[in-house]
Design a binder for these strands. Structure first.
Lengths: 335, 335
DNA sequence: CACAACGTCCAAAACGTTTTGGATATATAT
DNA sequence: ATATATATCCAAAACGTTTTGGACGTTGTG
């Protein structure tokens, strides 16, 4: 049988109100009464019904994250982000509600359902699109949210990594190692960060006086398989690139596989670099050169920004820009 | 302003009841009326308040997972499990509530809070302890739950991997490769699976006629660092083992680091093997020999068992035992 | 003595749903 | 004509909590 406030009220002879207030620590209840009530609550193992509390108080002490189906649930990027968000949320006593999409067209519906349904107090958004309907929606609803990435229009709290600077460093590193034919596996231009990283590529090539060859530019969808396919196309060119830069690590790992499949040696024959520094990057064979974004820390940061916002506290920084760090490993070093 | 059933009721001139029933698809509402109500609901962008619905219907369409603080939130084991559970839950239209512990003594309190507070409809449990208070609690509460692992007493739906058989295979593999001095980095005996894996070790050593040396047996706490420390102790012995078996991959990776730190070559000088086959295992240098448990699939399986149980459907299998597979990679191959 | 202040308590409303048990009017069967 | 079935609707209760606004008796102050 469920133990509710009513049970304790009946057991103790006081009203539901008094029981509630006694347990909540209000000071308009006699010390003895409180003692008595607490004792009964403990004995019966009372646990407040959180759903009822949430309904009444209109907040859930929960933050939400929606994982797009396109990203396959086990995408390490999301996993690391999740881990950072979850860790920090727990620090504030918040739970984390995860919702995964079955179909990507329905992604916005998920937001409507969760947000409109007051399931959570705020939302963490990642992988922003160029005209992201989710952001429009959340802004119109005046719903608390934070963004991993940059948002063109309007103000919203965000943490972003300077992808332009990151990619410039990679190209400079390639060129310093004597590479001139540089292939790039970029992501879809629908994604916000693609533009930034692509700008880094363009700037670096121009400032280093290298021509951009159309055939050296291919697109992947951020998965390892797509990286492998894209790299295969590059390597099949009559004059293939000697260095390949992928816009994320997963695609870079795929590219390494493609290189190795052709009997070439990553590093010696073809340099490969990625972006993210997911944990698999350091462990790869050979270890992958990459631009580190501290995803876990960014997740924590986002969670704390979101929760402060929910609680109406002022944010010390509104839009944070993190400098990424180039991590040079064997995948881009000539022997 | 919040759009509720009341708003639509006022706007349409019908009662809250009728609006609710119209939207829910009951057939005791006139077709025209329903049309009208749906039209208004769409126009206003009505989203049912899920908290209220949950309170009234006494179910949340959510399953829970509590991540112990001891496991560091980003433990790849939990991440893969999570990914499997989340994927399958979304297939059934369930969300996933994650709660992380700030302090491990409070873990049981978390269960009390979430379960007693009716926050979720059921719970997935992992890393079972030998006399696990969580299981006692959930059984007493008659709360739906499923377990990754084995439970000594009582019946509860579970999926487990035959750790005994897995470890036996590893030892047999070591011995077939000529190893006789085998070190083992085991986990705490407080964990249920430790007993099973340890039994595999004992059985294999006995059946192969090898003596068990106390000094070759050390304990770690499943983290990479502890594996490294434990392996260091083994390697510092006057007659160090030539093969090291860790009870999970993270510790095995730590052990590889310890071996390499001493200037020895993993595989050639010291063989290393782990258990789990987390994704980092294949990518490690050298790739790690390990016993694969299909964690992601097990997660999916658990989620579907749990949800069927919640929905009162019969389970086709109550206690599933998965045969693990030995994956031989370079970390245990002599050159 | 009157009045205010204080300490302790509680009934009722509210949060937004879903479900129960009819009410009412119309159509059909006897 | 009456009785019965059917179609459509709704008021009220319920889920379990928190908060509001005040009741009531006691104590202190002038």
């Amino acid at each position: 049988m469920k133990i509710t406030l009513r049970t304790i009220a009946e057991e103790s002879g006081f009203s539901i109100t008094t029981v509630s207030r006694a347990l909540a620590g209000y000071d308009d209840v006699n010390a003895e009464t409180r003692q008595h009530i607490i004792e009964i609550a403990d004995r019966l193992g009372y646990q407040p019904n959180l759903t009822a509390r949430h309904l009444r108080s209109q907040q859930t002490n929960t933050i939400g994250m929606i994982i797009p189906r396109t990203a396959h649930f086990s995408d390490p990027f999301y996993m690391e982000l999740l881990s950072g968000v979850g860790r920090e949320a727990s620090e504030y006593g918040y739970d984390l509600l995860l919702s995964a999409q079955t179909r990507s067209e329905e992604e916005l519906n998920s937001y409507r359902r969760i947000v409109g349904g007051s399931r959570v107090d705020g939302i963490v958004l990642a992988r922003v699109l160029v005209n992201d309907p989710r952001i429009d929606y959340l802004q119109r609803q005046r719903y608390p949210f934070v963004v991993f990435g940059r948002v063109e229009s309007g103000e919203c709290p965000s943490v972003d990594v300077d992808g332009t600077a990151g990619i410039r460093q990679v190209i400079a590193h390639f060129v310093a190692n004597g590479h001139r034919r540089i292939g790039v596996i970029r992501s879809s231009h629908a994604l916000m960060f693609t533009g930034q990283r692509y700008a880094g590529y363009v700037q670096a090539m121009e400032s280093l006086g290298l021509p951009r060859v159309d055939a050296y530019e291919v697109e992947g969808n951020l998965t390892q398989q797509s990286g492998q396919d894209a790299a295969a196309r590059l390597l099949d060119l009559p004059e293939p690139p000697t260095a390949i830069l992928a816009f994320n690590d997963l695609m870079a790992l795929g590219a390494m596989a493609a290189v190795q499949q052709r009997g070439l040696t990553v590093g010696a024959d073809v340099a490969v670099a990625g972006f993210d520094d997911i944990s698999a990057a350091a462990g790869a064979t050979p270890p992958l050169t990459t631009v580190r974004q501290p995803i876990h820390d960014i997740g924590s940061r986002l969670a704390s920004m979101l929760i402060r916002q929910i609680q109406g506290q002022p944010l010390d920084e509104f839009q944070v820009l993190v400098k990424p760090e180039l991590i040079i490993r064997a995948s881009s070093r000539r022997r």
